[in-house]
Computed example of a mutant assay.
Amino acid sequence: MAAAARARFHRLRVTAVDRLTDDSVALTFAVPEELREAYRYTPGQHLALRRTTVASGTHGGAAGAGAAEASDGAEIRRTYSICSPAPAGEAPHALRVGVRLVDGGAFSTYAHKEIAVGDELEVMTPAGRFTLDPAPGHYAAVVGGSGITPVLSIATTLLEREPQARFCLIRSDRTTASTMFLEEVADLKDRYPDRFQLVTVLSREEQQAGLASGRLDEERLAALLPALLAMDSVAGWFLCGPLGLVQSAERALRGLGVSRARIHEEIFHVDDGPAPARTPLASTPAHSTVTAQLDGRSGTWPVQDGESLLETVLRNRADAPYACKGGVCGTCRAFLVSGSIRMDRNFALEPEETEAGYVLACQSHPTTEKVELDFDR
Rank of each mutant, 00 (worst) to 15 (best):
S81W: 12
P163C: 00
D22N: 09
C324V: 15
C362R: 09
L121C: 05
R78Y: 15
D344N: 08
D133C: 10
G210F: 14
V99W: 08
F268L: 10
P43E: 12
T175M: 00
T109N: 11
H93K: 11
G57C: 13
G147A: 11
E205Y: 04
E372P: 06
V97G: 14
Y192L: 08
H138I: 07
G64M: 14
R171A: 06
P134N: 01
D272K: 05
Y322A: 08
A177L: 00
A361Q: 01
V151M: 06
Y192I: 02
C329R: 07
V246I: 04
A67M: 15
V303N: 10
G104Q: 06
G105I: 15
E265R: 15
D103Y: 02
L202G: 02
V371G: 03
L12S: 09
A62E: 07
P43I: 09
A282E: 13
V199G: 02
G241C: 03
R195H: 00
M343C: 00
M231H: 02
H59Q: 11
D232W: 00
G236C: 05
D119M: 06
G357R: 13
R254K: 08
H59M: 08
S84T: 05
S248K: 11
G60D: 12
R78K: 11
G236A: 09
N316M: 04
V142P: 14
L49R: 10
A38H: 07
L182G: 01
L95S: 14
I341C: 05
V234C: 04
M124Y: 01
C332F: 14
A3Y: 12
A323N: 11
A74I: 03
E33T: 13
P32N: 10
A88R: 09
P136K: 07
S146V: 09
S81M: 13
E75L: 11
F375S: 12
H112Y: 15
G128F: 12
Q197Y: 02
G137F: 00
A320E: 12
D272N: 06
L309I: 07
F268H: 06
E205R: 03
S24E: 09
A235Y: 00
G128W: 02
L256M: 11
A135Y: 05
E250K: 12
T312M: 06
R11F: 03
L49K: 12
R191Q: 08
V123S: 14
L152S: 08
D187R: 01
E206G: 00
G118H: 06
E353R: 15
H112L: 14
K370Q: 12
A318T: 12
T125V: 06
L35R: 08
A212R: 06
P43A: 04
E90Q: 08
A165M: 04
R19M: 07
T284K: 03
S24T: 15
G236D: 00
S71Y: 13
R204W: 10
S340L: 01
F181M: 10
L101V: 15
S71P: 13
L202F: 09
A55V: 12
L256Y: 01
T331Q: 01
E114G: 14
I170V: 09
H269L: 05
V25Y: 02
L349D: 03
A2Y: 09
R13G: 03
K370T: 05
G118I: 05
H138P: 13
T28M: 05
L373I: 04
R342D: 13
L294Y: 04
L47P: 14
D173W: 03
V17H: 08
L229C: 04
C332E: 10
V199C: 11
A55Y: 13
